[in-house]
Simulated scan of single mutants.
Amino acid sequence: MQKLLIIITLISSLYSSDLISPIPTNEDYDINKALLGKKLFHEKRLSVDNTISCASCHIITEGGDDNRKFSIGVNNKKGNVNSPTVLNSRYNLSQFWDGRAKDLKEQALGPIHNPLEMNNDFKNIISKLKNDDYYKNAFKIYKDGMTQDNILDAIVEFEKALVTPHSKFDRYLLGDKDILSTEEKEGFELFKDYGCISCHNGVNIGGNLYQKMGIIKEYKIKSGNLGRYNVTKNEEDKYYFKVPTLRNIEHTSPYMHDGSEENLKETIKVMIEYQVGIIPTDEEIYKIELFLKTLNGNTPVIMVDE
């Protein structure tokens, strides 16, 4: 075990904070489309019974998820995978835990058709929205008006605006070395020493690769979800999931794809135990948790008026 820790430490020493990039503050999006998308994101008429909107499972001002183990859809149907945050999702290599959507447009389409979520179709949606004065005027920004593609395009444009820059750690990366406390800095060093940064890196500190849950120690999948295998049907892809972003993680409990961990402390312990094969001390967990809390960013500008 000690040899394994030494190897991990040596490998992690090759990494630095350069592997993590601050969120850009000049991301482009079409404001008129995004504002229309904002309205659609909160529109319950997208669901077959007018009870569920995108915002039902992705509460923007509370972490971008719904803080449930599994989300609730129409007719109180329950899903079988934890709802990931929509915040900063533009930086992910794909969408959903198993990566079945290649981009935000495919992701937006999925819940609308899913019988466990909105259970609807666009013919029905357009028939409900076409006589609404707001939408009749708002969709004039598109030459062909209200269509499936334009509804999805507007939602995507809104989701592109859901970025949370200016976290304490971003400001640290940008040169404000005094903004983090000693213990927060020690937590970041532990984050690197344990090799967490090898999967959680990039602008989104995750979301840019798939990884097996249970690399060193077998993890009992509690939800029956087989991860990337659901998409590829390749045996070697079983239990591989898209690495989640750690941004704003303090506000996105419960954790893991199966929503099995209620708090950060237990999640940190589980990840290091199953992915590295080491049980961290309480002090190490405490410091890593302090570091993770420095990843909370600002509320997206497009939501500030709410």
Rank of each mutant, 00 (worst) to 15 (best):
E283D: 15
L173Y: 11
V243G: 08
D153T: 03
T164A: 12
R171M: 13
Y134W: 10
N150D: 06
L180G: 10
Y240E: 09
Y229P: 12
I268R: 13
K287T: 03
Y134N: 09
I72T: 12
V48A: 10
I11K: 14
I20Y: 01
H166C: 07
R45I: 01
E62Q: 09
N137A: 08
V74A: 05
T147C: 11
I197R: 06
I52M: 09
A55P: 08
G99K: 06
M146H: 08
L40C: 03
Q95K: 07
F96V: 02
D98V: 00
L152A: 02
N230E: 14
E62R: 08
N32S: 14
G187S: 11
C54I: 02
K293W: 00
D176V: 02
N67I: 00
K140H: 09
I59F: 02
T25C: 13
K128G: 08
L129Q: 07
K130Y: 05
I125W: 10
F139R: 08
S56C: 03
E218Y: 08
A55Y: 05
I285M: 06
N225C: 00
N234D: 14
E157H: 09
K265C: 02
I11T: 10
I155P: 06
F41L: 12
H200G: 03
V86P: 03
P84Y: 01
T232N: 12
K78C: 04
E159M: 15
T252K: 13
K143W: 01
K143S: 13
D258Y: 04
E266W: 00
I221Y: 01
Y172G: 06
S198A: 10
K140A: 04
S127M: 10
S89H: 05
T182S: 15
T61E: 14
E235I: 07
Y29H: 12
I125A: 12
I141G: 11
M146R: 07
Y134F: 15
I6S: 15
R45N: 14
K130N: 11
G64K: 03
E235Q: 12
E117M: 03
G37P: 09
L19N: 09
K168R: 13
E189H: 12
L173K: 08
N50F: 06
L162M: 13
N120D: 11
Y172S: 04
N150F: 03
N230R: 10
K212V: 00
E284G: 08
K287F: 04
D132C: 09
S260I: 01
T25A: 14
P244M: 06
Q107H: 13
V304L: 15
E27P: 05
D178F: 13
S253T: 06
A34T: 06
I8Y: 15
D237P: 03
P280M: 09
S260P: 02
E218K: 14
V86M: 13
Y172R: 11
K177W: 04
N296H: 11
S181F: 04
I72F: 11
V304R: 15
E261V: 06
L4Q: 15
K160Q: 13
K140G: 00
F122E: 09
N230F: 00
G297F: 07
M303W: 05
S181L: 14
A108W: 02
E159K: 13
F191L: 12
K269G: 00
A154I: 09
K102E: 14
L152R: 02
R247S: 05
S12F: 05
I125V: 12
N234T: 05
E261S: 05
S260C: 04
L5E: 15
I249E: 07
E289L: 01
A101R: 07
V301W: 14
L93Y: 02
D305T: 08
D121C: 04
M1A: 13
S198L: 10
